[in-house]
Write a protein that binds this DNA or RNA. Structure first.
Length: 586
RNA sequence: GGCAGCGUAGCUCAGUGGUAGAGCAGGGGAAUCAUAAUCCCUUGGUCGGGGGUUCAAAUCCCUCCGCUGCUACCA
């Protein structure tokens, strides 16, 4: 039986505030899963970090007038703070630029070279003299040779959608400075020989029946098209330096071209996944147990680790091909106690769209994490994003849909259940849990239904089907309102005060149960519910025994609050946000 | 261009061979503890178009249309 759960969320890129699409694709589902597993009592390690290397970060720092180090340090902290305010319960928040990741990245490169899985090749790259830097294909602009569009990028023409090579462009110029003082230069680069792992990857993916359709089909698409070897170095200043001078001979007895690889760094998509391990080492160092990371990642100790990765579908190829090849290559020929842990579950989500179009960081289109929290509490967003998670198809965000969902589910169904129960207790029973009455057939049938839905709900969480889990949770909340409507304590109290007391006592216990079950998705609301029945907000262990036992935890005489307030979104607020964020016109 | 995904009720989405589903919105009723919040019942769909396989197709096959993504140096 698996007892330890390792969870990673795709690393958010460093350049600025992330939007709701980023949140809902990786960080939020990972958090829901982590919270659920902790409540189950399992040992959980939930890791995330900023992905700090690459061209966009360098250019963003330049534009901000900061050194790249300052820029990354600042945004790493900002993203951390925002994530925490969203309730993201990372055990550690690291940085791909850490010393730990540098050491690991260089270690993997050395091992892969010495085992013969790296190759050094010469490539032609665009160099901008004006910018004093090599330019990635998409940072070269020019006129499309096919359609004449003047702002075509070096990788693809946005106008006619044809795939291009920078050398195809007419009048090419740097997209950074606009300078036409550019040229093609030869440059040596390291390639990861992914093509050698095609069969092994296919066999490995074949064992992952539980992966969602989108993950498997994207992974197989890459294999079916034929895996190409991938360049894992770049001509940049900021990144993990290529340590070719430390590499021994490869199986053919060749030494790397140290001179040709001078002043190069590893490609972000080589070092970013390694940062999952790197951040675990950062965590181990931070807690003062520097060897603790290894039992999560390496050797026979990982037998009882279940490793789940969460990401948007754009990241799937790097997690089904690139990173596994790094680990499989490093594992080759090693004894079991030296083997690296590969992922068990990949949860890939589709896109959350904004009014049918993309959320876009560059075009500032959509809702971003900072402005989201500025206008509403985290749980409003968490609930909406989980209940409408794009798990099997892209989903469209609209302000209308958002406010209706949040008002109906959180305020009207859940919030109102707690409020009507507490207010009734305050008005008729002096604000304490009333005594009297005994549970009968009505309570038995409530329990049966709760038991059934609880089983379904737990299974959905376990299987990372969070959208369906949210629908099930909502149905569980509805059982509370149904029970009150049927048993009508406001009528009972006129003829049978004991019966009314039993109904309210049961309802108070339902508030506690609902808080526990809701905690993975809406942790702040769960805490507020626990406080409303004067219990420890953190005492949310997942029910282990019979649900009936959960409904007698709060005994007669226990003090409770006299109400539970939950703010609703007003129509005029919604209209104002639609206006402010450009919903209706977007 | 190639590849992949998607197209199901007014909206957001489930449903992969066996009588078309949920939530919301709409309609009716009950109730009056509760922020008019709740509970019950209910209207609504030739499942993007066309063709085929099958006793049976939303589901499998072919084709066309539309949207989105990827296409390996953005991450």
């Amino acid at each position: 039986m698996t007892q330890r759960i390792l969870i990673t969320s795709a690393l958010p890129y460093i350049n600025g505030i992330k939007h709701l699409g980023n949140l809902t694709g990786s960080m939020l589902p990972a958090d829901v899963y982590a919270r659920y597993q902790r409540q189950r009592g399992r040992e959980v390690l939930f890791i995330c970090a900023t992905d700090e290397h690459g061209t966009p970060a360098e250019l963003a720092a330049l534009e901000a007038g900061q050194s790249i180090e300052e820029y990354c340090a600042e945004w790493n902290l900002k993203q951390k703070e925002l994530g925490e305010r969203f309730g993201l319960s990372w055990d550690f928040w690291g940085r791909s630029s850490s010393a730990q990741n540098k050491a690991l990245t260089q270690h993997f490169a050395k091992v892969l070279w010495e085992k013969g899985f790296l190759d050094i090749r010469s490539t032609r790259q665009v160099y901008s003299r004006a910018d004093k830097r090599f330019l990635p294909d998409r940072y070269v602009e020019g006129t499309c040779p096919h359609c004449g569009y003047e702002r075509a990028r070096g990788d693809q023409c946005e106008n006619c959608t044809r795939v291009l090579d920078p050398a195809d462009l007419i009048n090419p110029r740097s997209a950074v400075s606009g300078s036409t003082d550019i040229e093609l230069r030869d440059s040596k680069h390291v390639f990861l020989l992914q093509s050698q792992f095609s069969d092994e990857l296919r066999a490995w993916i074949g064992t992952k029946a539980e992966w969602s359709g989108v993950v498997t089909s994207i992974a197989l698409k890459w294999l079916d098209e034929g895996l190409q070897d991938r360049g894992i170095t770049r001509d940049l200043k900021w990144g993990v330096p290529v340590n070719a001078q430390d590499w021994g001979p490869n199986p053919k007895g060749e030494k790397p071209d140290v001179e040709g690889l001078k002043d190069k760094v590893f490609y972000v998509w080589f070092d970013a996944p390694i940062e999952y391990i790197g951040a675990t080492r950062e965590w181990a160092d931070a807690i003062g147990k520097p060897n603790e990371w290894e039992r999560w990642w390496r050797g026979s100790a990982v037998k009882d680790v279940r490793y789940a990765e969460f990401m948007g579908k754009d990241n799937v190829p790097f997690h089904t091909v690139g990173f596994p090849v790094t680990l499989l290559g490093a594992n080759k020929g090693e004894p079991i106690d030296q083997q690296w842990k590969l992922v068990d579950v990949i949860k890939g989500t589709n896109w959350l769209n904004y009014y049918g179009g993309k959320f876009s960081t560059s075009q500032k289109r959509g809702v971003f994490m900072d402005s989201a929290l500025e206008i509403l509490p985290a749980d409003f967003w968490r609930w909406y994003l989980v209940a409408n998670s794009p798990e099997s198809a892209d989903t469209s965000f609209t302000w209308q849909h958002f406010s209706e969902t949040v008002n109906k589910d959180l305020a009207d169904v859940l919030g109102n259940f707690a409020n009507r129960t507490l207010k009734f207790a305050a008005a008729k029973f002096g604000g304490v849990v009333p005594s009297g009455g005994t549970a009968g057939v009505k309570e038995a049938s409530l329990t049966t239904e709760l038991e059934r839905r609880f089983g379904i709900y737990s299974a959905f969480l376990e299987e990372t089907h969070f959208r369906k889990a949210a629908a099930e949770l909502r149905a569980i909340w509805t059982l509370g309102n149904e029970y009150l409507a049927k048993e009508a304590p406001w009528t009972e109290i006129r003829t049978d005060k004991g019966r009314a007391a039993l109904i309210i006592r049961t309802a108070v216990n339902l508030i506690r149960l609902f808080a526990i079950l809701s905690a993975p998705i809406i942790p702040f609301t769960a805490e507020a519910l626990m406080r409303s029945v004067k219990l420890d907000p953190k005492a949310v262990s997942w029910p282990k025994g019979r649900i009936a036992d959960e409904l007698i935890v709060i005994a007669a005489g226990a003090p409770i609050e006299d109400q539970f307030a939950f703010t609703k979104i007003l129509p005029e607020q919604m209209a104002a946000w639609e206006e402010r964020f450009g919903g209706a016109t977007a």
